[in-house]
């Protein structure tokens, strides 16, 4: 069963709007289709600005799609009350220095989700907070301290504890490790892997770095300028990318500087502006394989068993 389904979701923002003027339209998401099964881990990768966080906000129900729909457990996200929705899906953010209220003690931060939902008594909530903090590997005495007294990795554990305390089905982790020291990154990833296994969580793992999702994800979706350009089982995507963009991302992971920028494939071809997406295939200005039709015809998705890609000239693999 699919706990999460996204169908044709678009999201546009009006930028530069005034009381009278209309401003311009920014296309953050341009038709996203996605289905995630219960207990599955989906890796969502793509360059900065491709719309990963926007998609995360739609899934969390913090914003609604401009068109299309996002369905959680068979019901549109917008159809849930804020508390019902919070029970289904919870976020973990990139920057643990910004995701914890500096004025609250850890115990209050972690207890907030169940407090807001009015679950249990104050003392049963304290008990629950202790149990969750234990599960994410935080010592008990941290309950009474403030975020400023914790390290980045510890803070991220607090953020994970807060996300888990209300026992959600889906965890949306938006770049959960990219603000952390390299040494701490793998600890957090291992923690997520363990929690996912033990709690049967459905995990949406967002990253601009393919290496991060490689170990954890069952399936990977590659985003480019508000679109999913390729998706499929992790091994298939990593072993035999069909979309030239996926191949370029993989190459950047394998380059001497992992996580470095996408190698420049054509001089001057920068990441295009979501204010004016290129016509045809949005990737064509940078694509080494672009040919006839790429600049005019937007490729539909080609299905190939469990995977799919949007490309007129997919890479062939022997």
């Amino acid at each position: 069963m699919n706990v999460l389904e996204v169908r044709g979701a678009t999201k546009t923002y009006d930028v530069g709007k005034t009381l009278v003027g209309a401003g311009r339209t920014l296309h953050a998401l341009r038709g996203i289709d996605l289905a995630v099964r219960k207990g599955e881990t989906l890796g969502l990768v793509g360059e900065s600005g491709c719309g990963k966080s926007t998609l995360a906000r739609l899934i969390l129900g913090i914003e609604g799609p401009t068109s299309g729909n996002v369905t959680l457990a068979g019901k549109p996200v917008g159809g849930y009350g804020r508390l019902e929705r919070a029970k289904l899906v919870q976020p973990v953010f990139q920057d643990p220095y910004s995701s914890l209220n500096p004025r609250m003690r850890i115990a209050r931060i972690v207890a907030a989700p169940i407090e807001v939902r009015g679950i249990g008594t104050a003392s049963s909530r304290r008990e629950r907070v202790r149990a969750v903090m234990n599960a994410v590997g935080l010592p008990e005495h941290f309950t009474e301290v403030y975020p400023s007294q914790l390290s980045g990795g510890q803070r991220q554990r607090v953020a994970i504890a807060r996300a888990l305390v209300g026992e959600p089905e889906i965890l949306v982790c938006d770049e959960p490790t990219s603000a952390l020291d390299v040494s701490v990154q793998s600890q957090i990833l291992n923690l997520l892997a363990r929690l996912k296994r033990e709690l049967g969580l459905t995990l949406i793992l967002i990253s601009h770095n393919l290496a991060v999702v490689h170990h954890l994800a069952d399936r990977v979706a590659v985003m480019y300028l508000g679109r999913i350009v390729e998706h499929g089982p992790t091994e298939a995507i990593f072993g035999a990318p069909r979309h030239p963009y996926t191949a370029a991302l993989l190459a950047s992971v394998l380059s001497p500087r992992p996580g470095a920028r996408l190698p420049e494939m054509r001089v001057g071809a920068e990441f295009p502006s979501p204010l004016a997406p290129p016509p045809g295939c949005a990737f064509h200005p940078r694509c080494p394989c672009a040919g006839e039709g790429c600049a005019t015809i937007d490729p539909d998705e080609t299905r190939d068993g469990p995977r799919g890609y949007r490309c007129h000239y997919p890479l062939a693999h022997a």
Partner: peptide
């Protein structure tokens, strides 16, 4: 614009709670 406000929204906090408990003390 800090993420703890988005987190507060995601846990289902009421607007009043966000304004008075998350923002005001800061």
């Amino acid at each position: 614009s800090r993420e703890f406000i988005v987190a507060a929204q995601a846990i289902g906090s009421s607007t009043g709670r966000i304004l008075f408990k998350e923002i005001l003390p800061n």
